[in-house]
Amino acid sequence: MNDLHERIAASFNAQGLMTTLGARLAHVQDGEVRIELPFDARLSQQHGYVHAGAITSVVDSACGYAALTRGPEGCDVVTAEFKTNFLRPAIGQRFVAVGRVVNAGRQLAVVTGEVLAHTANGAEPKVVALMQATMVYVQPR
């Protein structure tokens, strides 16, 4: 494990929400982070799809951690704003949220994210959500 992965993993593992959702940090590289979320009926809405709140939470975290890979030494990151588009119902065995840095400055990072639904039959994953977000670099508390 490299220093970048360790830095992101330490922060990710401190998040109670990601633990509650059953999400796991799947991939870290400069400018990109992936978080996996297995299907769990406890995360569903009334039609049996994964709830938009769970989907938004994992893609927000993937975007934030992607931004953190480009952040100044010793900083942390918080979300300033985001917009999420839901393209189809979140149906699948597992979901992969991918956050990617578009531009990182000294104080802000603009990032994009997508959530891919993977099914048990091995079909091509489908994009269920897209995110555009702005992250702010802050000093840890």
Rank of each mutant, 00 (worst) to 15 (best):
L68S: 07
F39T: 01
E124G: 11
V102D: 09
R106D: 11
T119M: 11
V59R: 10
R42W: 00
C75V: 14
S44E: 04
L108Q: 15
C75L: 09
A117M: 02
N103Y: 11
A80S: 10
V58I: 14
P89V: 05
D76K: 13
V101Q: 00
T69E: 00
V78Q: 02
A54I: 08
V110Q: 03
V78M: 06
G92T: 04
D76Y: 09
V77H: 11
V98K: 09
A97C: 09
Y65H: 13
G113K: 15
V111I: 08
R100M: 09
A104L: 07
H118R: 07
L108W: 03
G53R: 02
H118D: 03
R70C: 12
C63K: 07
Y65K: 10
L87T: 13
I91M: 05
E81K: 07
A104P: 08
V59K: 12
H118V: 08
Q107F: 03
E124Q: 15
T79P: 01
D60E: 14
N103I: 10
A52D: 03
T112A: 13
S61F: 01
S57F: 00
Q45I: 00
Q46F: 03
T84L: 02
V110S: 13
I91K: 04
E124F: 10
T84G: 00
A109E: 06
R94G: 05
V50M: 07
F95Q: 07
G105I: 12
C63G: 14
Y65D: 08
N103Q: 14
D60L: 11
A97Q: 00
V59C: 08
G74K: 03
L108M: 15
V96F: 04
T112E: 14
S57A: 15
E73S: 09
E124S: 12
V77S: 10
H47K: 06
A52N: 11
E81R: 06
L116C: 11
A117P: 13
L108H: 08
A67I: 12
T112S: 13
L116D: 13
A90T: 05
A104I: 00
G48R: 05
A41Q: 06
D40F: 00
A54C: 08
G53T: 06
H47P: 01
I91Q: 00
L116N: 10
D76P: 10
T119I: 05
A67G: 06
V59D: 10
H51Q: 11
G74L: 07
F86H: 04
Q107H: 13
T119S: 11
A62R: 02
A117G: 09
A97G: 05
V115C: 07
